[in-house]
Design a protein around this nucleic acid. Structure first.
Length: 298
DNA sequence: AGTTAAACCTGGTTGC
DNA sequence: TGCAACCAGGTTTAAC
């Protein structure tokens, strides 16, 4: 479900409603990929900032607790307790990842938490709920984006696809260092973030590039075309409301519309829309790759 | 160092 | 119908 377009759609749907809300309570369900990293009660009384996105992560800024509620904890003279109280009072935020099957829903009257609802952030403007059957997702407290643990999780990410500072030359240069197949390099996010398995396949098809081509072998012009194809593919999916295959819906529960649009992904044996040759399915790095042998070349 | 496999976990689909 | 096998949008960690 969640590649960059889905994550961005989610961010856009939750950001306005949550901005300025005050957290009243946080609840945890079953364990996710990583622990929250703080006591859920520590999230209460904080004001929610404007949700941001980095790669496929959503960053939800949380201000310091209102009303001096913190600071009542420490025993006078106990240095460790004082330090903890200071940490509790500081600003920070939640780094949220949707994993393979996660989705966020912001609602005024949330139903009782189900078996796959693993995190609730109850606020004065509604409850943000993470629903994630496979539990590859995560919600992690971090003092800031550039401090641990967020900094470590974001450390390996390449440039944002829509960052104007990323140009064909820069993208090409990043590919030069990689001998792995271009499909796997796209998935790694080291040259550009955001293309998951579906959009990586689609972008390579748009660019007419064989997914098995070693990344460093792409010429500068072809690298430029691939970067443009990644941008076009992601932008198109974004414009259609995200959605990949089956069960994506935004934070208001609306379905996306990209699912009918795939040219090669999930279409093994069907005709390539461009040249009518049958679409092939191969496995690269334990992930399925779909491509057209006739019009995608090395 | 760079590339590749294994792991995390659940549910839906496919095939015998 | 029952059940095993296989598949799925992602990323970290361990192992060649």
């Amino acid at each position: 479900m969640p590649e960059l377009p889905e994550v961005e759609v989610t961010r856009r749907t939750i950001a306005p409603g949550l901005h300025g809300a005050v957290v009243t309570e946080a609840r945890l369900g079953k364990p996710l990929r990583w622990p929250l990293g703080c006591d859920p009660q520590q999230l209460a009384h904080r004001t929610v900032g404007l949700a941001q996105r980095r790669g496929k992560y959503i960053w939800l800024p949380l201000g310091a607790p209102l009303g001096g509620a913190a600071g009542q904890a420490g025993t006078p003279g106990d240095a460790d307790a004082d330090a903890d109280a200071d940490a509790d009072a500081a600003t920070g935020g939640l780094l949220i990842h949707l994993g393979m099957s996660g989705s966020l829903l912001l609602s005024q009257q949330p139903a009782e938490a189900g078996a796959h609802d693993h995190f609730d952030l109850v606020t004065t403007r509604g409850t943000l709920r993470l629903h994630d059957p496979r539990r590859f997702g995560a919600v992690v407290w971090s003092p800031a984006l550039d401090r641990e643990p967020a900094a470590r999780l974001l450390a390996g990410l390449g440039p944002e696809p829509f960052d104007a500072a990323l140009d064909a030359a820069g993208f090409h240069a990043r590919l030069q260092a990689r001998r792995a197949p271009i499909k796997q390099v796209l998935l790694s996010g080291q040259a550009v973030v955001g293309a998951g398995n579906i959009y990586a396949c689609e972008a390579l098809h748009v660019a007419g590039i064989d997914p098995r081509t070693p990344a460093y072998r792409l010429s500068r012009p072809r690298a430029g075309r691939l970067l443009q194809a990644v941008r076009d593919t992601l932008a198109r999916a974004l414009a259609l409301g995200g959605s990949t295959l089956r069960d994506f819906h935004d934070a208001h529960g609306m379905d996306g519309a990209y699912q009918q649009q795939a040219a090669v992904y999930g279409r093994e044996g069907q005709a390539c829309p461009r040249c009518a040759a049958p679409v092939l399915r191969i496995v690269q790095g334990q992930r399925a790759t779909y491509y057209c042998r006739a019009c995608q070349r090395r």
